[in-house]
Design a protein around this nucleic acid. Structure first.
Lengths: 203, 203, 203, 203
DNA sequence: AATGAATGAGATTTCATTCAT
DNA sequence: GATGAATGAAATCTCATTCAT
């Protein structure tokens, strides 16, 4: 009995994940508004009615997909960065890892950067347009730490964080939409170099 | 007679501009998808049917508003930048002027940065998601010129352009959505300072 | 002054006729429902608003066009038939003249036979679907006269009238829509021959 | 399971037929253009959206209703006529059966004869205005056979077919719209008699 | 009298969501 | 739990008609 429940729950969990993956793929491709519930259902190999057993409505689906996937990616990043000692190196590593993740999941990139914000409920849920706030907070911490280390000029951390996040997002979106001439990894490395040069204490 | 015709055309021109302004305001506030034609019509003080005398359909309205307004702003920028001699100074001036323009027109900022891309037709019209390509081209030119002057390291121009555009857009959106703690003008100035430091030839 | 009024009225009359002609042409081509007021206006070289100076509304235009044109054609027919003495010959002549008229004005044929009845107001105005009643009455008279002459069997006049009108309309519509293999004039002549044979007293 | 599937399909079939019947009834009464989708939906006891599960759009509905119903009636006619040996009798029987069918379904008569052609798509689908071509072909065959039998004069079959079809349609429409003074069955019988007389070989 | 820009009522169609099976 | 047929609210767009010029 307990065993059966467990498999039932497992099956449900699998189904839920399938729907989330389907949502990211289809929305990443077609955009939120052009994506019909039935499209996501087909991608996930379920009936459209089934989605409503797992999510309240289309907006709820979008927001849960957004939050859960973002959290997963952030944890993945933190895990790999924590072991690193050097504060400045941590920042570099963050940028490179972020690039690697979305290079491998361009549909997620499109989903996060372009499409997710098209949900009407998004505005009610994130009235200040801050769905990435956890992400930003983390980068801000990394920047503060770097600045507090002896290697970097005494800059406003938010200024640095926004340069990094802006550069990262802009280049990744350009790449994902086929508008980047150079290799994305290379561009990020060169960008890191420029910013390094711009923030390190005069040697 | 000639005079009367002239006033008629002027009135039509005014009306067209009123609709464009109304579209930017309402879409900038509510987003493209939540904006109904009737909303724009009310903002512009016309009947909904009137909009269809000036634009083919909702998508056509959005794209024309986008293209025309962007072109207007770009010309405005070019006009003020052209007189400047120093290539590096030009780049700085661009960033500051761009900031000034959208600081004065935050509804346009929201419209351009967040909402316009939500039109289904946007994807057909700009399949590679490059509605800002004219804008980008211009910045790329400014970057090339700066790099070719003797003051800046031999960087890939696209890398520099993307740092600048990414930083600019990210900060402006943060500001427009109330997520910037510091003064936008100040942040841009400090960002310029960092990038300057990062790109100038070692003194 | 009187002269000027006269020319004014003449000009108005001309304009009215132009609109009627335009309506027949365009409606005959595109059908009532697909014809926009602006289409008729363009065909008649007037502004759409002008039509409302001469007709109450689209339905009123249709009905007036219908009634007036039909009356004109009926009078034209009567004029040519009246001189004929022989009652049976009159009937034949009617069929041939009717054919000639619409062979020369296929747009009127389409208008009368196919399109006019598509106006919503048509049903209110002719609740028993009898817009051609004057026409039918006349044919019925011709039939009665022919039957009362000594040459024709004592048939119910309505039966004969309906054979003639049905055959006439069916063949003309077939012809006007390109669905008649043979020559229309020939078909009508052969049809007359058959009906003659079917109604004359045994010789 | 198989049983359940079968009932589901049966239910869907029933619903489809209900919509078709509703369309014929309402369009036959009000005309195509005055008939709103919601009218048909109400007549068929479904929601308006439901109609779009079975038909692509209003035009598609009209055309499918037209084609399917016409085919059904033609098959019904053929079935009853085939057993008859005598070629001339077949022709008579056709006219009488056709009359019987539409006497029993006057709404179909109105639908076919008056309203169906009002759909815009009708023109694209039947550019030569020949939606009844199957029907006509069949009558033409009957006429040819009758003429080839030894009983009838060597007439052009199309001439005979058009007399019959024209007479039939004209009388039925007159009857259905309340404009026939005599009994429809009687009128058709008398018409048959006249045409018989007109086409048989001199005895 | 003529124009044609503006109006706004009204209809088709879509698609998120429900619920009977 | 899963399905997918059915629902019906809501939005775009059309076009007959009006009316200021």
């Amino acid at each position: 009995m307990a065993y059966e429940l467990s498999t039932l729950n497992e099956r449900k969990q699998k189904r839920r994940e399938g729907i989330i993956r389907g949502a990211i793929v289809v929305i990443g491709q077609k955009g939120y508004n052009r994506t019909k519930i039935i499209d996501i259902a087909r991608e996930a190999n379920v009936a459209d009615g089934t989605i409503y057993l797992y999510f309240d409505n289309k907006d709820d689906l979008l927001i849960k997909v957004f939050d859960e996937t973002l959290e997963k990616r952030l944890n993945q990043l933190k895990e790999q960065i924590e072991p690193i000692e050097d504060k400045l190196e941590r920042l570099d590593k963050f940028l490179l890892l972020h690039t690697d993740i979305y290079k491998e999941h361009p549909e997620e990139l499109r989903f996060f950067a372009l499409e997710a914000r098209q949900s009407p409920e998004f505005y009610n849920r994130y009235p200040d347009f801050s769905p990435f706030s956890e992400y930003k907070k983390y980068v801000l911490e990394l920047c503060k730490d770097a600045i507090n280390s002896q290697k970097v000029r005494k800059l406003a951390p938010e200024v640095l964080a926004n340069i990094l996040l802006g550069t990262l997002e802009y280049n990744l979106v350009s790449w994902a939409t086929g508008n980047l001439k150079l290799s994305i990894k290379n561009v990020i490395k060169q960008s890191i170099d420029i910013v390094h040069n711009g923030i390190v204490l005069d040697k």
